[in-house]
Every structure is written in C-alpha cells, then in structure tokens.
Design a binder for these strands. Sequence first.
DNA 1: AGGTTCTTTGTGATTTTATCACAGACATTA
DNA 2: TAATGTCTGTGATAAAATCACAAAGAACCT
Lengths: 226, 226
Amino acid sequence: MLRKIGGLRDRVRETLQFLKGAGPELLDMFYEKAEFVQIRAGQHILTEGAECNMIIFLLSGSARAYKLGENGREITLYRIKGGEGCVLAASCILNHTPYPVFAVAEFDLEALIVAAPVFRCWVQKYAFWRDYVFGLMSQRITSVIMLIEEIAFRRMDTRISEYLIQKMDVVSGKLQTTHQQIAADLGTSREVVSRILKDFEHRGWIVLSRNIIQIKDSDALGVPVH
Amino acid sequence: MLRKIGGLRDRVRETLQFLKGAGPELLDMFYEKAEFVQIRAGQHILTEGAECNMIIFLLSGSARAYKLGENGREITLYRIKGGEGCVLAASCILNHTPYPVFAVAEFDLEALIVAAPVFRCWVQKYAFWRDYVFGLMSQRITSVIMLIEEIAFRRMDTRISEYLIQKMDVVSGKLQTTHQQIAADLGTSREVVSRILKDFEHRGWIVLSRNIIQIKDSDALGVPVH
DNA sequence: AGGTTCTTTGTGATTTTATCACAGACATTA
DNA sequence: TAATGTCTGTGATAAAATCACAAAGAACCT
C-alpha cells in the first residue's frame, strides 16, 4: 500500500505547486519522508472522532469532507483536489485533537502522506512550511464561515441554482449526478432537491432524466425569480 | 485611547493565562509592544471586509463575532471572553485577507492590542507564540464546524432549550435577554423564538416576562419531547 | 425475453421554520 | 398623562423538512 516516492519526484514537484517556494533542505526531506498511496473511490480516509496521525496531499482525484447529522443527512464542508493538502488534518495534528468530520475519496485518489510527528517537526523547523500551513488553515476558516452564512441565510432554490451552474459541464451543459448527491452536498434532504428541480424543469430552465440534469437556461438559473 | 501597559503588568499576566508558558524575551516584548484600550459596549471592533491591522486580547468584558445576512438576520459565530485572543484576526493578519465577519463589544471591554506587523514577527520568531496561534486557529475551525452541524441538522426548539440552560443564571434560574437577542445568536428570526418560548411556557417549563425568562423545569428543557 | 432486484425519482400529507403584517403590552421620557 | 420606543404575541402565508409510499429506470439474473 505505502511506498516511497522514488521516481515520482518530477510528478510531485509539478502537481504540488506549493513546494515551489520550499528550500532544498525541506524539499529533500519531503521526498524522503512522504509516502505514496492510492485510495479507491468511496473509501474513507478519516472518520469522525479518529485520531489524526498523518497529513495527506493529493496528486490526483478528489476527496470530500462532510458532516453526518443524527437524522442521516449529510453536508459537504469542502473538497480537496489535486495539488492540495488537508488542513483540518494539520490542525488536528498540531493540537492532538480528533478529526471532527468524515473524509472520503470521491474518485480514485493518488496522494502523498506525511506522518504526524514529521509534520509537526517541519512546522517548527521551516518557516516556509509553517506559512503554508497557516495559509491553509486561514483559507479553511474563511470558507467554513462562508458556508455558515449560506446555510443560515440563503434560500434553497438559490443555492441549488448556483450549485447547478457551478458544477455543470460547460461544453454540454449537462451535469451527471443524483438528487441525493446534491442534497448531501447542500445539507438538505433528497425530496427538497427533487421538488425544486422539478419546479425548475416546469419553468423550462432544465430537463431532468435519471442521473442527468440538462441545463437549458443558465441565465434564468443565475437570476432566479422569488 | 491607546496607552502603554505600564503598571498593568501584574493584571495582564494574571488574566492572559497563556502567557505563562512564554519565555522572558517574548514576555518583555509583549509588555513593550502591546497597548491598552477600552471599548464601550455596543461599539464595533471590526466590520466585515475591513483590513485587519491588529490582534486583540481581552482582559475583561466580552466580544461577539457574527455574520449578517442579506435579510438582516444575524448569527453569532463565537464569543471572546477575558483572557482570550481573537484568532480570526490572527488568521487575517497572516494571510493579508479582509476580516470576514463583524465583531462587536457586548459589554464594556478592556483589551490589549498588538499591531499586525509585530504579531507577524512574533509568529516567525517565537515557537511558543506560534503554537499558541495554531492552537487558537484549530479551536476555531473545530467550533465553527460544530456550529455548521448545529444549524444544518438540529431542530430549533432543541437549540433554544440548550441555549436557555447554558445561559441561565444557575442560582436564580433566570435569564435576562430579549427574544431578538436569542434569535441573533441562533441565526433565526425573532418570531420563531417567541413562538417556541411561548410553547415552552404553555408546557410549564418556563415563565416569560419582558426581558426575563424564568426557567421552571430545566430537566424537561434538557430532554424535550418531539 | 421475462422476471427480479436495486436505485432513482415523484408526490401527497403533515410538521417545522421563515416571512410579512400588525397589534397590544410595557417602559421611559417628555 | 401623553408620547415614544422597545419588546412580545399572533394570524396568514410561504419555504423547507419529514414521513410514507409508488412508479420509473437500470442492472442482473436465469
């Protein structure tokens, strides 16, 4: 499962853009200590309450961090894509606190992992590394606060509109997903999504079929009537 | 308005517990660079979108950080009390990003402020300071994620129950506040709070009067029937 | 091909939450 | 006492969540 980076150096340097600013010493350390892993789509990376003993950097694929409610509903907090590291893990490592959410591979992943003690050491030793981690954490705080604003104040139809526009394939105007997946991203229930989508279809803004949403009028979606 | 700490050293050391672990050099720097301010209740400390050019540490009083929705509703993100510093400010300083929320003094405040460049310098220079800031930021991420879970999944009556129990004066079983204030903390509207409280009163769990909520049956509130 | 099973979607009925509109209660000040 | 401002109560309506169930579509078997 785990293996040394070895011949992947070039690819790593190219994918993990943030390493560009790193000094040669840190870079060498990184290549030496980081290990390569592959994780299949659907597999969980971390579960809520787990102790966090590593930090992960994605080379390809994407991971989703989400909260699970008592009622079984989900809400996506954020996604991590190729080139990015998981801050929340960083945060947990530095404070020895358990991981507060679930993280799952959405598509097959390739990633590098760095063990917690090594990570902690680098934060102490390398200003560059520290700045990077601070940056990640700030970004995350900001994005999570924006999510709060969205959940607390914005209407579900507006949120779904934006979701569709943001996620649609620009060329085909299509979006391959289920109502359940949209609900899990937005933190609502499937029925609510189905009904709002049906309403959009009646207005002629989209066309629905199983697993597919075809956007017909993205302008109208962008400026929904209330 | 601003003034040197001077004779306040003892009080500062006693109130800002986290300074205990600081080395003498950092401690001297802190006493030299930090300035004392007083802010009256209701006055804003930072507004959304403002550039953050200082970090604040509270000696007394309390501050509230909140988001303001388009519809005028508010939601409290967190509070800062005596002895604590504002992380969000820290985060903004380190990333040169604008402050993403409003912060207001709830009661008359006494605080120390440290200018942004000084703060940045200390993060680079002192491991202790760095750890403290990392700790604050992690705590904040975690608390904000818990808030998301609460907003997204939990019922309003349960949230209000818990709010009442958490905020009531343990001795008198009373709570001096307005429905509007509760609504602003929880991110809902005043009418919703009024109606749920009225329902609690009908069940005999509380007694309502202007500006006062008297808890009669905290057990029943703790285990609400749905 | 036909039947079985599983996933996905649709929808009525009901409850909870939000919004709008307005009135009455209470407190403060003139 | 009157006037003003803040706080609370409540009906009507709309939006969102929950429950319950049915039907459509895809996949998988013989």
